[in-house]
Design a protein around this nucleic acid. Structure first.
Length: 219
DNA sequence: ACCCAGGTGGCCC
DNA sequence: GGGCCACATGGG
């Protein structure tokens, strides 16, 4: 069922090409920054912030360490929650320097469970952000769960869980352990969610409406 | 004028 | 273990 849904979404929407980065010497670092900035915020707002950071040559661990909070706040203002996100970025960068000599590759050289645990120790990095970093920056196989994932799969009727780790286990149990598959599937779920499966869904046009129990009594 | 976005942590019970 | 809440901009 999981693979079938993936195929339907892929055939409908095509490849999503996540995670987008600018032309940059430190794409992995840029993905980490983007993962923090996009928390509860549209990517469009994040892109503006990323472009500002890139223009100031801040998309690397050394410069990010030195910039003053007030200046960083201004550059990322468009991404919303900008005071909080400034602290989160600083929390991460301090963690990276304190424990990994400021080297993303050193952080990523650990096995997935340890890497996840390390990322989750940073205040401001929760499960979805940690897993996004592991999947899209470190290119290691872990399934990213977000609000759309929970909503869509509960509505279809194949999950009842609410707990993040339980839903993640279900996906990983029912899919091959493949980085590219996990990459594309999560992006496709976000795409479907944005277009058809908000709180006010558009079930009639939804590519999953033939298999989704929710579509029978709404939209 | 609403409603929402590629969440998280803090507080309360 | 959940149920609220603050956090904040920009687009529909």
């Amino acid at each position: 069922m999981f693979q079938k849904i993936y195929q339907i979404l892929y055939n409908h929407f095509g490849p999503q090409k996540w995670w987008p980065t600018t032309d940059n010497k430190n794409p992995k670092f840029e993905i980490i920054v983007g993962a923090i900035l996009t928390q509860q915020t549209s990517w469009n707002n994040v892109e503006k912030a990323i472009n500002n950071l890139k223009r100031e040559n801040l998309l690397n661990p050394k410069k990010m360490l030195d910039i003053k909070n007030k200046n960083l706040e201004k550059l990322i203002q468009s991404s919303g929650y900008y005071r909080q996100k400034t602290k989160k970025l600083k929390n991460f960068i301090n963690f990276l320097w304190n424990r990994y000599d400021g080297k993303v590759e050193k952080l990523f050289s650990q096995p997935i469970p340890k890497l996840r645990e390390e990322l989750l120790s940073v205040n401001g990095i929760g499960k979805e952000t940690a897993d996004s970093i592991i999947l899209y920056a470190a290119n290691k196989p872990i399934f990213v769960v977000d609000a759309y994932t929970t909503r869509i799969f509960n509505r279809i009727g194949i999950t009842k869980e609410r707990d993040y780790d339980e839903i993640q286990k279900l996906f990983q149990k029912n899919l091959p352990n493949d980085v590219q598959l996990f990459n594309e599937f999560h992006a496709l779920i976000v795409k479907l969610g944005k277009e058809y499966c908000k709180k006010k869904p558009k079930c009639n046009e939804c590519p999953l409406n033939s298999i989704c129990s929710h579509s029978k009594n709404s939209g």
